[in-house]
């Protein structure tokens, strides 16, 4: 899935914005940002952080410098073991025009040592958004690993929104996530996944725009997929 192909697929499907959140890394951010800029597509970025609780969470930013900082911070908290490409696949870092810069050797399939409160603090101190990923899934989700959405003792939220996966039935989940803005996104791992589901809202596809939309709980989800 090259950055240009992702952007082209999203444009063709009529999306206004996309977010790139590779697992445990934001190293491909510069490539997708350049492709999106050339295509006139809004683009946010960050990483799907797999926390110490083994929960998938989305950290979203709009600053390339912060994305670099995020990658370094996650990498420092990953196991020292190297990736085994035969088991987990190759992990290329690419330029916007598909030159391979490096094959990432860190084991990005592993959890990092940072827990949800720590990642939430990191993200919010830098003005980003923190979203609990695919909360309807039994594995690698807040409900799957922790049985609930964790919240700070003193009140408030770690997460700015929660994500339902492409097959989740919104009505089934409404009660469990009623304190949160909800998005549905494709979690595309293959080009054919791009834009199969989406989230609509009135507002700007920027960090500030999404913050406002989330505060108003003003998202509308696309229909779910009933088959892959």
């Amino acid at each position: 899935m090259s950055p240009a192909a992702i952007v082209a697929a999203a444009k063709a499907a009529g999306m206004d914005g996309i977010a790139l959140t590779d697992h445990q890394s934001a190293k491909n951010t510069p490539a997708i940002v350049e492709c999106a800029r050339r295509a006139g597509l809004a683009c946010l970025f960050g990483a799907e952080v797999q926390t110490a609780e083994e929960v998938h969470t989305l950290a979203l930013f709009d600053s390339l410098e912060t994305a670099r900082e995020l990658t370094d911070w996650i990498y420092a908290a990953l196991p020292r073991r190297k990736n085994d490409p035969e088991t987990f696949g190759e992990q290329p870092v690419v330029t916007w025009d598909e030159e391979i810069i490096e094959m990432e050797e860190k084991i990005l399939a592993a959890s990092c040592a940072h827990d949800i409160p720590t990642v939430a603090d990191f993200v919010h101190r830098r003005g980003g958004l923190y979203i609990a990923a695919h909360v309807d899934r039994p594995n690698f989700s807040v409900f799957g690993s922790l049985g609930e959405i964790p919240e700070p003792f003193g009140g408030g939220h770690y997460f700015d929104a929660v994500e339902l996966s492409r097959t989740a039935d919104e009505a089934t989940w409404r009660d469990k996530i009623s304190n949160y803005a909800v998005i549905r996104s494709s979690d595309a791992h293959h080009l054919s996944d791009v834009s199969r589901v989406w989230t609509e809202a009135d507002g700007a596809f920027t960090i500030a725009g999404l913050k406002d939309i989330f505060n108003r709980r003003a998202t509308r989800l696309s229909p779910r997929l009933t088959r892959f």
Partner: peptide, 30 residues
């Protein structure tokens, strides 16, 4: 917890778990 399995489980072993996920296979292979 797969990170725990990765850190502590040894070879020639049975892994007793509820983690019914593709990634469990990858960790078990390691």
């Amino acid at each position: 917890l797969l990170s725990d399995v990765m850190g502590h489980c040894g070879d020639e072993s049975a892994l007793i778990t509820i983690q019914n996920h593709l990634n469990t296979i990858a960790v078990c292979t390691l």
